[in-house]
Design a protein around this nucleic acid. Structure first.
Lengths: 216, 216
DNA sequence: AAGTGTTTCAAACATACGTTTAAAACACTT
DNA sequence: AAGTGTTTTAAACGTATGTTTGAAACACTT
């Protein structure tokens, strides 16, 4: 399994194991055993475990931000005279995400789970890394999102963006377990892109809920 | 800080540290130091670190399910002739959650994080433990939720319930990081119950989005 | 006050971890 | 084929972890 490229084998194994068990619960020995490489290879190729974690993210995220940037360029060009629309922005993001993980099935799921772990587990270095490395594109998207929801206060928008993020991360990171449950409970299987089709209207409607003023 | 009851001191310290850093990243030495008790006390009183984690979990969940069951009794009694209403059901759940963790801030936070781990760990026995021990109350709530959203297909409802679950778990489990970000970005601090007040309309609106039929 | 069961304590235990090392194996130019 | 820079390897290092131990301290009945 290893012959091709040691660093790549390590990334593949690490990606899978991190998603299964979390960061702290996955040892370098687990990773190198699964990858079929020597224990020292991780430190040789990546320097440290921390850097390996960041590299796993970077491998997914680098192509993703390029794609997203391109998609945003097209989007802004095609809408130069009209304000951005929420549903189309969400659709743009989902399309870009699906396309970015397309080389390996389940990579989007894995990445979402990793992102969730990065938020929920300690890993302060990861959040700093993400913010520093990819902050620009996210801020650009965020700007469009603001213009697509001018009726929201900054506070409302901030929180609702994270509500969306939570719903999306949870759903996509656990899409395998969830589709299995859906299959069992409803007798109907659902693909990832179908799940996203169900998700987007939910998000858009939640986002567009009336602002929290005084109301029963 | 310890004199009163060693086991309780350990639970308090563990709860706080787990919430701050996660489980694997918190050592028994961290916990016992903070609790002001001897290192061996954890193993003496709880048997193992795993059992301590479950004990932290049970301390929140046992009163919670009792409270939820009571709240559902009252709810059903007061609405014997009318069908349940979505927003009031969500409100009931949030009130019960907040009340259950009211004696110490951050308790709801760690419970949500535990729940997230139970979901993200595909084969964790924690998840089976939950389903077996507390499944009845959750199934009862789920039944009411179905009656509150009769316009949804079983499939739509299944997925949207999990969208809600994801948004809620992510938000509340990371409420400390998120409020810190909000404080930094907006200069405004937000309490947990205020976050929930922002969350519920988002969830309710998403839940009530038009069903996904044939539409642009 | 002696006796008894419980709780605390300092110390040690075994294990697992991330990382380093120095030699060996390899790849590739000259 | 020798030389050179890169990669792989087995072994060891230092540290931190969860857990166990046996004696001391305590609480409480008799």
């Amino acid at each position: 399994m290893a012959q091709k490229d040691t660093a790549r084998c390590i990334l593949d194994a690490a990606e899978e194991l991190f998603a299964e068990r979390g960061f702290a619960e996955t040892s370098l020995r687990n990773i190198t055993a699964k990858a079929g490489v020597n224990l020292a290879a991780v430190n040789y190729h990546f320097g440290s475990k921390k850097s390996l974690i960041q590299a796993v993210f970077a491998r997914f995220l680098n192509p993703f931000v390029v794609e997203l940037d391109k998609a945003l360029n097209e989007y802004e060009a095609s809408r130069q005279n009209s304000e951005p629309d929420l549903m189309s922005l969400l659709h743009l993001l989902s399309m870009t995400s699906l396309r970015s993980g397309a080389d390996k099935p389940g990579r989007l799921n894995i990445f979402m789970r990793l992102l969730g772990l990065a938020y929920s587990q300690g890993q302060g270095h990861l959040r700093r890394f993400l913010r520093l490395e990819y902050g620009h594109v996210f801020r650009r998207y965020s700007e469009l999102l603001s213009r697509a929801t001018p009726e929201l206060s900054d506070e409302d928008r901030f929180w609702r963006v994270h509500f969306m993020l939570g719903a999306t991360m949870f759903t996509l990171s656990g899409v395998d377990s969830l589709t299995a449950m859906a299959q069992h409970d409803l007798g109907k299987s659902t693909s990832t892109s179908e799940v996203i089709d169900l998700l987007l209207p939910f998000l858009a409607r939640g986002m567009q809920a009336p602002a929290q003023s005084q109301d029963s």
